[in-house]
Design a binder for these strands. Structure first.
Lengths: 339, 339
DNA sequence: TTGAAAGCGCTAACAC
DNA sequence: GTGTTAGCGCTTTCAA
């Protein structure tokens, strides 16, 4: 590793001269600047980021905490975060909380000591279930800002980026209602995650609002375990013979449900209309393709970075926190009547 | 942010005393140690990693370069990398090359200046296509070790972690042959990626070896573009009416093919036996479920970390580089005859 | 048992 | 136009 000192030595000048020359300081003669730059290139000098960070008290890196990288929704968000960070000149340190409070807490503590300038994170399931917020507040109080996305702790005052889950589910449900479906069931694989609750609320609200719909809301909680998801869904479809509308609020179960229904002879969309949430491209893995409420995951990531960097680089003392809502779109494919 | 200096000031002792006390140095009296630790906890002191890194000339962080995070195979590897890094006390800085040589090169340059102790990476498609290796060799020559996984540059001397792709494809093909299939086609979505080539080789070798198989190898290259993958596969299945064995060498096309075949009335596995490569859990999104050659992506990530850390922490000057092969397993589900 | 000083690589105020 | 110095937070020799 080659340092300013090395350059200075080979050129027979002082370290500070080299430092200034590399920054095109007007204090330094054209000639010296040229010589310095030449030798710097020759020796492939690269400034030591660590030393710079120590000096500047900022690292130009963002800590990112992802609850579940195997979930494509989060992978896409990470993708968006990385892209935008790059554009704005930041690096990211990625931590995977794996839905565990302990890991999340750990990462926060480990990095909130000058290693990163701020965090972008989605709260772990465990954290959300237990309502833990102290670690989040502590971090913010240590002047390390946090931007939360998707899964958000309501009682923590920080910038947030969310989907309008309530409205998304409301609109999704409306589609089924307007098709004249009589028994619309919602399948919940999201446990008691905040976003799940909002979606369920939106579903209920839509049923309630439309007087044409006579039935009661039916929410069926099932486990999000790949091994048994298929069977659980098949059971539901078989048991509720009169179900003609199915609303799946995660990535996978919609696709699976369409395939199962078709296989056991329940025609989609004629006898059963299915709509799902999506953040990835698996909607074409069912036939007919799944109609979805599509979340723009990359956009969530990008927006998060923009908000964090805005805060980091703002001159003002304390800009008030804000919550950004990223648009969703409804993409009708073959699993619902109207395309 | 609270520093040693702060602790020293509030206690009225010197910085070095505090430093030593926190490390339970025998030089320091029990009493002082206790006092120091108490106040440190009280003020929530956290050592500044940056300063430590600068001092120690090692950062305990690993640079990870992933070509495509939206590919679940890579996401899983990242997962494995993060897990094992954690166990071994390392952080990771994640860069996404997005299959671009330029981004890959950039990340390498940006971080190979003391920001990370070493790299774990899979080579970008562009890099591999163009046969670029200089940036990789340069990095290694600057004493920043690299471990490559999956997509590997053969003419770079470094630690590597790979799947035995040749053998995996060989074995996969054999399954189809042993079922007595007469026309086995391989569909390649991997362009000229090294792993793709190896798989094709394995497929050919298997056909060649088994005299019972009379046909010629048929390799069909198609584009890995989600928008048209479906149509491309449907065309192939429709055109090759006598195809009774299909070998898909990526994650998705196997699942898709099974669904398409079933839909257009070609019975799987009776009339068409399908086998695919998998690294994720979408094999249950087809019916019948897809039989796969399963790559243990997490294991690849973990192994990579172990090799890198072993090198980083080895006392010896230069341990020779090595290549680890991670096992694959064959998981027979419904898309092939024998379960 | 404790502290002073040097140094990791870099910058910037200040001197020459 | 160039060099000296101090300091970012920490460790570690060496001196007290």
């Amino acid at each position: 590793m080659i340092t300013l000192k090395d350059l200075a030595a080979t050129l027979g000048v002082s370290v500070s001269t080299v430092s200034k020359a590399l920054k095109d300081s007007p204090e330094i003669s054209k000639d010296t600047i040229a010589r310095v730059k030449e030798i710097a290139k020759e020796l492939n000098y690269r400034p030591n980021t660590l030393a710079l960070s120590l000096k500047n008290r900022k690292t130009k890196t963002i800590g990112v905490i992802i609850p579940d990288i195997l979930n494509v929704f989060f992978a896409r968000i990470l993708y968006g975060i990385e892209q935008e960070s790059n554009v704005l000149g930041y690096n990211i340190i990625t931590c995977l909380s794996n839905e565990s409070f302990k890991k999340e807490n750990n990462s926060l503590n480990l990095l909130a000591n000058g290693s990163v300038d701020g965090f972008i994170m989605s709260v772990a399931q465990e954290t959300q279930t237990n309502g833990e917020v102290k670690h989040l507040k502590d971090t913010i109080n240590q002047d390390v800002p946090i931007v939360m996305f998707d899964r958000v702790a309501n009682d923590v005052d920080c910038d947030k980026v969310i989907i309008d889950d309530f409205n998304a589910a409301f609109r999704g449900t409306e589609i089924l209602i307007k098709e004249g479906r009589k028994k619309i069931i919602l399948v919940n694989t999201l446990g008691d995650l905040s976003v799940g609750k909002l979606r369920i609320l939106g579903y209920k609200k839509a049923l309630e609002k439309h007087e044409s719909y006579k039935g009661e809301p039916i929410v069926i909680d099932i486990e999000d375990d790949k091994a048994i998801l298929n069977d659980q869904l098949e059971n539901i479809i078989r048991e509720h013979k009169d179900m003609d509308g199915l609303f799946c609020i995660d990535n996978v179960s919609g696709v699976m449900s369409v395939n199962i229904a078709q296989r056991i002879g329940k025609k989609v969309p004629e006898e059963l209309s299915v709509i799902g949430f999506a953040s990835d491209d698996i909607s074409h893995l069912s036939y007919p393709h799944l109609s979805t409420i599509t979340q723009h995951a990359e956009a969530i990531g990008q927006q998060s970075v923009r908000m964090l960097v805005a805060r980091l680089e703002s001159k003002e003392e304390a800009i008030p926190t804000s919550t950004a809502t990223v648009d969703f779109t409804i993409e009708l494919r073959g699993s619902t009547l109207e395309k």
